[in-house]
Design a protein around this nucleic acid. Structure first.
Length: 472
DNA sequence: ATGTAC
């Protein structure tokens, strides 16, 4: 049974472990194996895995788990990708989907969100009480207390405890490398979604029978309205990536390091440039988690405007799908890269944050526009893939091809425009978002089926969109 | 995904 969802592919430079059902495996672009072969030319690699939503990226595929030993390992900005710390966050509300049946109320809520959540960089003076230096050095712990409304008692400290990581240690030496304009722009981009597939969504959840106990332990109920956020580290992460990649490229030339792909950049963990990159990458992970936190803060304000002070929005979880860090597996320390891959730890795994020790933590998987997203939990079988599962649907058409091939009418139909159950969008033209139409992506349900079939994770809740807010 | 240069 299990082998139907797993293939070991032998390539000239090594092997890649592919988790995908037969149909998805057969449909993979041969280029994903070319990229795997290049990645496997980086020295000392211990493991490389692909998730069922794998697709071609720059230098490395989205859907990659790449692992080294800490002692003789390598770090690659190309494998992490340029949206460092990009990830997902879900908040639970005390609303039921029936309370949002009226399309006019959904419109009102989206309007309120647009008022509090800036779509572009905001003007000077906004968040002037937040110090960017504290944010990138200390993550959520660098925010003034007023932005952590539920942090005053240990039991209710959900914003700080229900996250994959609330703080990465950043000494700060390498921070001096960035020009003033990057600091300025990044401060003004705090709490903004950004473009592409990033979104904030109002969703209603459905709980399948098999994991009802876990759902209850997490506070999930049938028909409950949740807020899902998908965003990253904006210009800050992009600058880290660009700066470190260009320095590493020079070093690689000088030292004769490299693979068949000049765009695949890497350095030994022990090298000065490797250490600089890890520290700066951590600053971007800090930025990303704070960015998602502030987006949630804005949406909470909007919710209170529409539903009054009784509106609640507790944090279920915040986790990343573009990052690299040290992890223990079976007592050994590894340096694990995840690009478009989500960690999903099973029950009792020691790396679960305290509130999720017994059950495993929520693994959050976004769907494409108009389609469902998922809240999953890891299973012990995930160990074989270093506990990595998918990160979403996976693109099947480039942005340019999507704009050429998908009509606005097709896109509008998928968003049920004009129907009573229309998925309400914020004020942007449909034309400008056609490249995010579900027809540009694989079917997320099929991806999830592969993840479950392979024994990596299971579904705890399916989240259906009621309203979607996209950035600029 | 993103900023910037073409």
């Amino acid at each position: 049974m299990l082998q139907n969802y797993y293939q070991q592919v032998k390539l000239p430079s090594g092997q890649v472990h592919v988790y995908a059902g037969p149909e998805l495996f057969a449909a993979l672009d041969y280029k994903v194996f070319e990229l795997a072969n290049n990645n496997l030319q980086i020295p000392n690699q211990v493991y490389m895995g692909y998730t069922p939503d794998v697709h071609v990226g720059v230098g490395t595929c989205i859907g990659t788990t790449a692992v080294w030993n800490v002692e003789d390992g390598y770090v690659s900005p190309s494998i992490v990708g340029s949206d460092i710390g990009c990830g997902m966050r879900v908040h639970l509300t005390n609303l039921h989907k029936d309370e949002l049946k009226d399309v006019k109320l959904r419109r009102k809520l989206v309007k309120a969100i647009e008022k509090y959540l800036p779509m572009e960089e905001h003007g000077r003076g906004h968040f002037s009480d937040i110090r960017l230096e504290h944010v990138v050095k200390k993550g959520l712990h660098g925010l003034p207390k007023k932005y952590i409304p539920d942090a005053y008692t240990p039991r209710k400290a959900t914003s700080l405890t229900h996250v994959e990581s609330s703080k990465f240690y950043v000494e700060g030496g390498a921070l001096g490398l960035f020009p003033e304009r990057v600091w300025h722009r990044s401060h003004r981009q705090l709490g903004t979604l950004g473009g592409g597939n990033h979104f904030a969504e109002i969703q209603a959840i459905e709980i399948p029978e098999e994991n009802r106990e876990i759902a209850e332990a997490w506070g999930l109920t049938d028909g409950q309205v949740v807020i899902m956020i998908h965003s990253g580290s904006r210009a800050w992460g992009g600058s880290v990536s660009q700066y470190c990649s260009s320095n590493m490229t020079k070093m690689m030339k000088a030292e004769g390091l490299g693979t068949a792909d000049p765009k695949l950049v890497f350095a030994p963990l022990a090298h000065e440039l490797g250490k600089d990159y890890v520290e700066l990458m951590y600053s971007a992970l800090n930025y990303a988690v704070v960015n998602r936190h502030l987006i949630a803060y804005a949406i909470r304000e909007a919710g209170k405007d529409v539903f009054g002070s009784k509106f609640e929005m507790s944090t279920l979880y915040d986790l990343m799908h573009n990052y690299a860090w040290e992890e223990e597996h079976d007592g050994h320390s590894y340096f694990v890269h995840r690009k478009g891959a989500t960690r999903a730890l099973p029950a009792q795994h020691p790396d679960n944050p305290e509130p999720y020790k017994e059950t495993g933590h929520p693994a959050l998987i976004p769907g494409s526009m108009g389609s469902s997203s998922y809240i999953m939990v890891g299973k012990p079988g995930g160990r074989d893939n270093y506990h990595s599962i998918c990160h979403g649907a996976g693109r099947i058409r480039s942005r340019s091809a999507s704009k050429r091939l998908i009509t606005v009418e097709e896109f509008a139909a998928s968003m049920r425009v004009g129907m009573e159950d229309e998925i309400v969008l914020n004020q942007r033209s449909l034309e400008s978002m056609v490249d995010e139409s579900p027809q540009a992506y694989k079917d997320v349900d099929q991806i999830i089926e592969s993840v479950v079939g392979a024994g990596l994770a299971e579904v705890v809740a399916k989240c259906k969109p009621l309203a979607t807010v996209k950035g600029a």
